[in-house]
Computed example of a mutant assay.
Amino acid sequence: MKKTLILITIIALAACKSPEARYPVIQKSGSHISESIAKNQELLEKEVAQIEAVIAADSTREYQSSPDGFWYTYNKKNKDTANTLKPEFGDVVSFDYSIKTLDGQVIYAEGEKATRTYAIDQEKLFSGLRQGLKLMQEGETITFLFPSYKAYGYYGDKNKIGTNWPLQTKVTLNKIIEKEENQNQR
């Protein structure tokens, strides 16, 4: 009995060993991320070259580069110097737009999409258009040239716009309702 008690004590003491950390069998090197970055940089360079070719071919208009990563030109500019209001966070805008590929193939024609009402930076809208609307004044029409990452990106619109398509978007800003006015109407 004494031997059994000693054996049980030895087994109990051996079982109280502290746990050891298990290390992963496979360790990731991060090379997938590096490859993805390189691929995206290459895609952007290609799209910027396409956009620059469109700009070079259109000698009738003056294009401006946005610090947000897209280009634009005025089709109709507001010449009323008294009205310089541009939409800000929370303002509600009403606008119409059409979308084409960079080579001019119509994706969504003018009037095909209903007039859109949008609360600036408070609703879902692709990033280039969201930023482009903030550059506009009431009554202006601007054509934007967006690289795919500023448009619908990798996923497209799951309808007519495919993966990684740079786009031309013509936008007419119909009306701006300032945030204060918008709250008073409720």
Rank of each mutant, 00 (worst) to 15 (best):
A57W: 06
L43P: 02
L167Q: 04
S94F: 07
E45N: 13
D121W: 03
N164H: 13
P166K: 03
E88K: 12
W165R: 01
E180S: 14
E180L: 11
V48W: 10
D68T: 06
V92I: 11
S127Y: 09
F89W: 05
H32G: 10
I107R: 01
I55K: 04
E178T: 14
S36I: 13
K39H: 13
Q50D: 13
I8D: 07
S34K: 14
S66D: 10
A21N: 11
A114D: 12
Y152G: 01
F144S: 00
E180V: 14
R116I: 08
K124G: 05
Y152H: 08
I6P: 01
L5H: 08
Y63A: 09
E35C: 05
P147T: 04
S94K: 06
A119N: 10
V106R: 04
Y155D: 12
I55N: 03
N83F: 08
M136L: 09
T172P: 07
A38S: 15
L173S: 06
V48Q: 10
Q131W: 07
N184I: 15
I10V: 12
K76A: 13
N75E: 15
A14M: 12
N83Y: 11
G132D: 02
A119S: 12
D58S: 06
F144P: 01
Y155N: 13
T81F: 14
G132L: 00
K46E: 10
D103K: 07
D68S: 14
N184M: 15
Q183I: 15
S98G: 07
D58I: 06
T141G: 04
Y108A: 03
K79W: 08
F95S: 01
A151Q: 02
V54W: 02
G132V: 01
L5Q: 11
V171E: 03
I6D: 05
K158T: 06
G128D: 01
G30E: 05
I37W: 07
Y97P: 00
A151R: 00
Q105P: 00
E47R: 04
G104K: 03
K134D: 01
D96V: 08
I10H: 00
A49C: 03
Y154Q: 09
E138N: 03
I11N: 01
M1P: 08
V54L: 10
G132K: 00
S18I: 07
K170F: 04
Q168A: 11
N159R: 09
D121E: 09
V25E: 10
A57H: 10
I10S: 03
I11H: 00
